[in-house]
């Protein structure tokens, strides 16, 4: 009994340390604000809340895009930066020229902008490869397994880079 308790505690803390510093969700949102790809990286079965976060963060993207005054110098910038300063997680946005949005949700509160920028750049190229597939229907969900694998590689390397 005692052993199991101790073990229990240690695994939990290990879990925490992993979950506290990582990307929990990455999403591609089409120009009509429709989800094209959404992948969560949490262990719990709570993808829906991440759907919610991504969906609501579109408000911020919309706001920035629709109010050029506020985002004046950002016009030519694809990286939208931090969308959401909340207490518990951070949402970053990226807007391609075709008005496709990439949304990143991370629980790593000390992440650096440059890292995220770099992440998005890599993600963008993965996305470009995925939609360049002649069998991909533009505007439809991305179902490519290769893309999913590549995304998870990028996500893993991101976590590794920032935490390690």
């Amino acid at each position: 009994m005692f052993n199991s308790q101790a073990k229990f505690g240690s695994t939990e803390s290990a879990n925490l340390s992993v979950t506290e510093k990582m990307i929990v969700c990455i999403a591609v949102v089409g120009h009509q604000n429709n989800p094209l790809y959404i992948q969560s990286f949490t262990e719990a079965d709570d993808a829906l809340k991440l759907h919610h976060i991504v969906h609501c963060s579109l408000d911020v993207v919309d706001e920035r895009v629709n109010n050029p005054k506020k985002s004046g110098p950002m016009l030519n910038e694809t990286f939208l930066g931090l969308l959401y300063p909340t207490e518990n997680y951070k949402v970053y946005g990226y807007l391609t020229n075709t008005k496709v949005k990439f949304i990143l949700v991370t629980t790593d509160l000390d992440v650096r902008d440059a890292d995220v920028r770099n992440f998005f750049r890599r993600f963008h190229s993965a996305y470009l490869d995925a939609v360049s597939n002649p069998f991909h229907v533009p505007g439809k969900k991305i179902t490519s397994k290769t893309f999913a694998e590549r995304v998870s590689t990028i996500v893993k390397s991101f976590s590794f880079n920032t935490t390690g």
């Binding site: 009509q32 604000n33 429709n34 989800p35 959404i38 993808a47 829906l48 759907h51 969906h55 579109l58």
Partner: peptide, 8 residues
């Protein structure tokens, strides 16, 4: 439904 978020 307007934006196609079917899961939600």
């Amino acid at each position: 439904s307007g934006e196609g978020w079917e899961d939600l």
